Simulated assay, not measured.
Amino acid sequence: ACGDMNQRGGGNFAKAVAEMAGAENATGCDVRGFCAAPTHALITAASLVKAGTYENIVVVAGGATAKLGMNGKDHVKKGLPILEDVLGTFAVLVSKNDGVSPVIRTDLIGKHTVGTGSSPQAVISALVSAPLDKAGLKVTDIDKYSVEMQNPDITKPAGAGDVPEGNYKMIAAIGVKRGELERTQIMEFIENHGMKGWAPTQGHIPSGVPYCGFAIEDLTNGDLNRIMVVGKGSLFLGRMTNLFDGVSFIVERNTGLVEEKASISEDEINRMIANAMREFAKNILSTEE
C-alpha cells in the first residue's frame, strides 16, 4: 500500500502503473492478499474476462526494498554477504480465449476457507485436493505444480530451509494418502512434478506466479497438458487476524475450441427483413380494405 501517515493503506498502484505505461483508457484496482495476492489477482482477472466484463487485464506487481532488508539481516547476522540484491517483478496478460493460449480453469479453484485451519498439511490439502476431486483427477495428473518458488540458496542460510521442496513433499504425501502414490515414489514425484526454487524471496513474488511464463511455453510448444499454480499467504502477514490464506488454480493446454456467441448470417438477416416487410405490407393492405 502507499500513502501518508494518515492514509497508510491508500494508493492505487494499478492506476499509477497504467498511467506510467501510457494506458490512458485503462482502469485499475489493487488486489491485496499478501503472499497469495498474485493467485487471487489472476483468478479475479480470468473471471472478469470470462464474464465479458473486460477483454484484456494485466496483473502486475513488484517486490519491495523493505523485504530485501528483512532478508539481508538474516544473512548479515551469520557473517554472510547479502545474497539477494534484486527487486523481483512480474506481469501476466489475461485475455479472452484465442484457441491457442493456455486456459485458466475458473471452475477448478482451490481455496483455503476460514474453517480449514492453519497447519501446513491442512492448507495444502485444501488447495490441492479440492480442485483435483472436482475434476476427477489424480495428484499425478498435474504435470507441474508451481508453489512458493523461493530460491533455497537464499532461504537456507536464513534458516527457512528449502521451501519448494517442503511443499512438494506435502503434495506427494497427499498422493500417498489418496492411494495414488506409493511412499517409495515420493522423491520420484518431486523430481517429475516439482521444480527447483529460483525466484526472489520477496513475499508475493515467488508465490506460484514465477512459473507462468514458462508454463505458457510448456503448454503450447512443450509437452505438458496441465499445471497447477498454488499461492499461499503465511500467518506472519496475517498476525492481526490470525487467519491463514491461500488459493490455487489449474491451467490447461488449449483444446482449440473457442466459445463464440451465436451469430446470424447476412443472408438470414436479409430474409428476416424481407419477411418483416411482407408482413407490414399485408397489414397495410388489410387495414385499407
Rank of each mutant, 00 (worst) to 15 (best):
N6H: 06
N6Y: 10
G10Y: 12
G11N: 09
A21T: 03
A23L: 14
A23R: 12
E24W: 14
N25M: 14
A26R: 03
C29I: 15
C29F: 15
G33R: 02
C35Q: 04
A37W: 03
I43W: 00
I43D: 00
T44H: 11
A46G: 06
G52W: 08
T53E: 15
T53Q: 11
A64N: 14
G72N: 09
V76M: 12
K77S: 09
G79F: 03
P81A: 01
P81T: 01
D85H: 05
D85W: 03
G88S: 06
A91M: 05
G99D: 02
V100D: 03
P102A: 05
I104H: 01
T106L: 01
I109T: 04
G110S: 08
K111W: 05
G117K: 07
A126F: 03
D133Y: 10
A135V: 11
G136N: 12
L137M: 13
K144N: 03
P152F: 08
D153N: 11
P157F: 02
P164C: 07
Y168T: 02
Y168M: 11
L181W: 06
E182G: 15
R183K: 15
F189W: 09
G194Y: 04
M195F: 11
H204Q: 11
Y211D: 02
I216E: 06
I216D: 01
D218G: 01
D218F: 06
D218L: 05
L219R: 00
G222A: 08
L224A: 07
N225G: 14
R226F: 05
I227S: 00
V230H: 03
L235A: 03
G238A: 10
R239L: 09
V251R: 00
R253K: 15
L257A: 10
K261C: 05
K261Q: 11
S265Y: 04
I269Y: 14
N275R: 12
F280H: 15
I284S: 07
E289H: 13
